[in-house]
Simulated scan of single mutants.
Amino acid sequence: MAPEAIETPRSVGTSADIWSLGAMMYHLLTGDYPFGQGLNAVPKIINAVLPQPPAFLFSNPQFSPLAAELIQIARECMTKNPRNRPTADQLVDKFSNLCYSVAVRARGTVEDFLFNAYGYISSENGRVFFHKECVYGVMPKVGENVLFSCYNGGGAPRALPVVKLR
């Protein structure tokens, strides 16, 4: 809930939706709620105590630049003063400048993981190679489900990025 929705609920406008978008983005990127949950979150929201993102977002150089840009946008959306938040049109411009893959995503199961470096994913489209450097977030274990995009890898199809599913 945006700070103004807590402090002055009768004056809530569309900028509260922008705040909510930032909070949802943060949650989707990190797996954590930006200010915690329940009543414990209220003082942090009102005091605009923005969270530090988890280190895993920036630990992989393949994903770090995009993660940094997305976290920055989320933080701008969660600015306490509604007049200082980006507008919907400004967000469209910011998102259109991001560099990300629009490749089709597939679901699969980690089949094996060898030498703590690479492995294969079983999917309905066959066996797909992945490297640990292509994993975003927590490294999946054998038997766990993942979401990935598949590219021609010059021999075996290659998964990038790979995201562990809960």
Rank of each mutant, 00 (worst) to 15 (best):
S122D: 13
A48F: 01
Y33C: 10
R105E: 14
Y151M: 05
W19V: 07
L29T: 00
A16L: 03
Y136R: 08
C99F: 05
F113C: 10
A156Y: 11
L114T: 14
M78S: 04
L147P: 04
R75T: 06
G22H: 01
N81K: 07
L160S: 13
G153P: 07
M25C: 02
L98M: 09
M78E: 05
P61E: 13
L165F: 10
F63H: 01
R158I: 15
P34Y: 00
E4Y: 06
P65A: 02
V12I: 09
I6A: 04
V42K: 05
Q72S: 08
Y100L: 13
L147G: 07
P3V: 06
K141Q: 13
L21Y: 13
Y118R: 11
G38C: 12
A55C: 03
F113T: 10
E144M: 14
L50A: 03
D112L: 11
K164R: 15
E76C: 00
S123Q: 04
A67R: 00
V110S: 08
M1D: 07
K80H: 08
A67W: 00
A5D: 01
S11A: 12
Q37F: 09
P3Y: 03
P51D: 09
F113S: 12
V146T: 09
F130G: 14
R83G: 02
K80W: 01
G143I: 07
E133M: 12
F148T: 06
A23D: 10
I73K: 02
V92A: 08
P65N: 02
C77D: 00
R10P: 00
V102A: 14
H27M: 11
M25P: 01
V138R: 15
K94M: 14
F113P: 11
P51L: 10
G13T: 12
P161I: 05
P43W: 07
L28G: 04
